[in-house]
Design a protein around this nucleic acid. Structure first.
Length: 472
DNA sequence: ATGTCC
């Protein structure tokens, strides 16, 4: 497959075979996946064959191989021109995302209470595979209200304040959630997990604002140099996973009925207007609301720990998903069109003035939250004018080593010592989980962010460094 | 990512 270097931050894959549009990959030469180790460039080309896809099949600088679609992939289909929705374009962890909260506390003040806060978080934050949650729902009726209301329902139940909704994507809940399309098995898996991190790359970190690149925008976001923050990265747990599994199965069967051929079974899809697609989108929206409620109550639990140890609480900076499909209006070829925008390991990044932004963020643009790998920096970015890939940017560092590879090469004791030397307090759930997430298994998040900015997808507002990490 | 295989 031929790659054409258009700029230092942008490569093109010209249409060939069944591709309906070109591939556009926002990477530098060093971030370009190595075809021997990672087939995600092939996946970009395969996504370009989907019915109704418009403009291009895009990939962000943190791209790597994923189920069907690449992680870091963005693909939009025209809803009124046979466009499809594909669960593989969202991923198994539906509405996985990041919530950033800020304390009215300086990092030097945190040093005195670090042990107390970290021990408190260690007790308060459920994590690891299937080990409890902070919110005990009364039963499937209440789960239904979570699936419909997301963070709005959590706040209505006393788990938060209005600012939590103002600063959450979509005001805390997406519309059109359809809990009737969520299977009994998904409900059972979801009942006991609202308010839990899970495992893998999910975490809760205490961080400090290490550098601010734009004072005015950082201030609008509620961030200042030296400030202590809490970043939460998690998703929709077993519920989202089960929904993806259930609906992929349905779409695999439905595809032949709609006469859709895809080069990879993992690209199973259905026309957005079909009953199968509407069922998936309804269930996906329910999982998105579940994930928002999950992050809402985890943030509240962290705030309670901070309040007890320091006297100050935590204010929400923003909450944004990086695994979601959305029906959005975009201008394509001079025409206003209704698109189904899949973002999988890619973050929406709305420009200044966009009507979906809350009034106090309109001039600044939408905050974009980029979690680094364990022990490395995280970033706050902002959306920029121009559109790029339907107002999208990167979502994190991106793996370069498999979990298996990382576990073979990294020793837990060495890793813990290195983190300790950097002044990072660690409260992990398992040694295996820690070594799988070692920084060597990931790309350099600073280069990912610099590439995204160089490609005109966003701009850098602040860099955060970890002080303490709570891992699943 | 995930009751890491119903």
């Amino acid at each position: 497959m031929e790659l054409i270097e258009e700029t230092p931050y942008r490569f093109r894959i010209d249409r060939h075979g069944e591709m309906r549009v070109p591939g556009v990959v926002f990477v530098s030469r060093t971030l370009l996946p190595h075809p021997d180790q990672d087939r995600s460039l092939d996946q970009v080309a395969q996504v370009a064959t989907l019915p109704g896809i418009v403009s291009a099949s895009y990939a962000m600088p943190d791209m790597h191989w994923g189920y069907g679609f690449p992680i870091g992939g963005v693909a939009a289909t025209d809803v009124h021109a046979d466009g499809v929705v594909s669960p593989g374009g969202v991923g198994f962890d539906i509405s996985c995302g990041v919530r950033l909260l800020a304390a009215d506390l300086d990092r030097h003040e945190f040093a005195r209470v670090c042990d107390q806060v970290m021990n408190g978080l260690d007790r308060a934050i459920p994590r690891g595979v299937g080990r409890g949650a902070v919110w005990s729902l009364s039963g499937s009726d209440e789960l239904d209200r979570v699936l419909r209301g997301g963070a709005r329902y959590a706040v209505a139940q006393g788990h938060g304040v209005q600012r939590d909704l103002d600063r959450c994507e979509d005001g805390g809940a997406v519309a059109d959630a359809d809990p009737t399309q969520v299977s009994q098995r998904a409900v059972e898996r979801g009942l006991g997990q609202v308010g839990s991190l899970g495992s893998g790359n999910h975490f809760l970190e205490v961080q400090a604002v290490e550098e601010v690149y734009d004072d005015q925008v950082a201030s609008a976001f509620g961030l200042r140099p030296g400030q202590v923050c809490v970043m939460i990265h998690c998703g929709s747990r077993g519920l989202g996973h089960q929904i993806c599994t259930d609906h992929v199965r349905v779409m695999e069967k439905a595809m032949t009925r709609y006469g859709i051929h895809v080069p990879d079974r993992q690209l199973a899809c259905a026309p957005v207007s079909s009953p199968e697609a509407q069922a998936y989108l309804g269930a996906m929206a329910a999982a998105a609301n579940y994930a928002r409620a999950n992050r809402q109550v985890l943030g509240e639990a962290a705030a309670a720990v901070f309040r007890a140890a320091t006297g100050c609480g935590l204010d929400l900076v923003y909450d944004i998903s990086h695994n979601l499909a959305k029906i959005e209006e975009h201008e394509v070829g001079g025409e206003r069109r209704t698109l189904c925008v899949h973002r999988k390991g890619a973050t929406r990044a709305l420009p200044p003035g966009h009507r979906a932004l809350p009034a106090d963020l309109s001039a600044a643009g939408q905050p974009v939250l980029i979690p680094g790998s364990m022990g490395t920096a995280s970033y706050v970015l902002a959306g920029v004018p121009g559109g790029g890939a339907f107002h999208s940017t990167c979502h994190g560092a991106g793996r370069v080593q498999s979990r298996h590879q990382a576990a073979k090469t990294v020793r837990a004791n060495n890793l813990l010592r290195e983190l300790g030397q950097q002044g990072i307090a660690v409260r992990g759930a398992s040694r295996r989980g820690l070594v799988e997430e070692a920084p060597v298994a990931y790309k350099d998040v600073s280069e990912v962010v610099a590439t995204a900015e160089g490609a005109g997808l966003c701009r850098t507002i602040a860099r955060l460094r970890p002080l303490g990490v709570v891992k699943g």
